[in-house]
Write a protein that binds this DNA or RNA. Structure first.
Lengths: 213, 213
DNA sequence: TTTTGATTTAATCAACTGATTAAATCAAAA
DNA sequence: TTTTGATTTAATCAGTTGATTAAATCAAAA
């Protein structure tokens, strides 16, 4: 019964700084991505959002409901851009490699906790993610196979190629806490700088592997 | 008081299949690495170990205590082999690259959940891990810099080189649930086969990147 | 057989947690 | 001013969870 009024309120609250719904989602996203589902308490979310527990359940019926929203967002962030790039028929495969790398590194510089969060949740609750299918049926895939046929690319398992591109782009963000732990470690600025360099270099490195027999 | 008798029992129980302590640790390792600290209940561990809750607390005073043991094991698994390889003064840097890759892929084929587990825990509770220090002070490092000086290796940030080696080796295991989700996905056997191929190829790919300017 | 320590059973605790409810408050629209 | 909906406060509930305890059982050593 309470929830009918909710929808109407959204229309009313026109251009305020941030709606209560958004405050809750923002807080939930921060905590869920940082600590995972089980480690986060609904009371923590309410506090982080600057509201109270009752209101949280007034907007989102349950912790699970709220979580699913965050999860959906993250999956979209993670796969949507990829899908668009890889199916563009106007770009060369070389250009696509650059775009995939740029896309991931830029995104991860903004949301560094996303990959660990996504990997955890996918493992805990195997979703219908068709990452491999997207790649296998992509225009990018056809371009690569054409390149192999002409000899421009050395024969190789294209799945391994794809693994290489995403590994080099994503892993540094997953392993970040390890490189940044301890004394003589990297500052945040140095890490960003390093990733910017990788953004330039990964496509070149990948190109080099395409010549390896 | 109960815990004094525990130590003595270890001496007694000579060559039985598996001590109760070990059964508990094995169960805890399985569950913790699969699901993380918060998602695992002490009752789950007891059940998985085939004993009861009271006995679990009789051996290990608390869930935390038990967790620290598993965590320590995992960190050791993850970094000890690496440290040995990288400081061997008798092998070439090329050989070291092969060994690092082999070491990680072999280990991860046995314990696929370790990296995600370690990354999660390190982030949640930043430990004094000196991964970067180990690498920076290693003999491997000196060999690389010597190679750059002679021009055998193109000038590059050695941290990026290290990142490349571990990214290519480890990430496929972290991303595994994604590649294996959905319909037209890879079987376990195919995944292992793919990793065996990577074990051969990654050193070659890395070699290729060493020539990139 | 007696004794000792390992293990189980079962009950209990206190704290936490997700969720709900009713009443009060508040701000803004009508 | 009245009304309406958003939000708070405070209390409560039931289920979970980590942990402890006492008594019973069991197996093997002494």
């Amino acid at each position: 019964m309470h929830h009918i009024s909710k929808e109407m309120s959204i229309l009313k609250r026109k251009k305020e700084e941030e709606s209560t719904e958004q405050k809750i989602i923002t807080a939930a996203r921060k905590l869920f991505t940082q600590k995972g589902f089980d480690a986060v308490k609904t009371r923590d979310i309410a506090e982080e959002a600057g509201i109270n527990l009752a209101l949280l359940n007034y907007y989102f019926r349950s912790k699970e409901k709220l979580f699913e929203i965050i999860m959906g967002e993250s999956l979209e962030t993670f796969f949507l851009g990829f899908s668009n790039i890889v199916n563009d028929e106007k770009t060369t495969y070389t250009k696509k490699i650059e775009q995939i790398v740029s896309n991931y590194i830029d995104m991860l510089l903004k949301s560094p906790d996303t990959p660990l969060f996504v990997m955890n949740q996918v493992r805990a609750n195997p979703k219908r993610i068709e990452a491999k299918k997207i790649f296998m049926n992509s225009y990018f895939m056809k371009q690569l196979q054409a390149g192999i046929k002409t000899g421009e690319i050395a024969p190789m398992n294209v799945v391994n190629l794809m693994l290489n591109i995403v590994s080099l782009s994503i892993f540094p963000f997953i392993g970040r806490p390890i490189f940044q732990a301890g004394e003589g470690s990297i500052t945040d600025e140095q890490f960003i700088e390093l990733m910017m360099e990788r953004k330039k270099m990964i496509p070149k490195w990948i190109e080099a592997t395409l010549k390896v027999k």
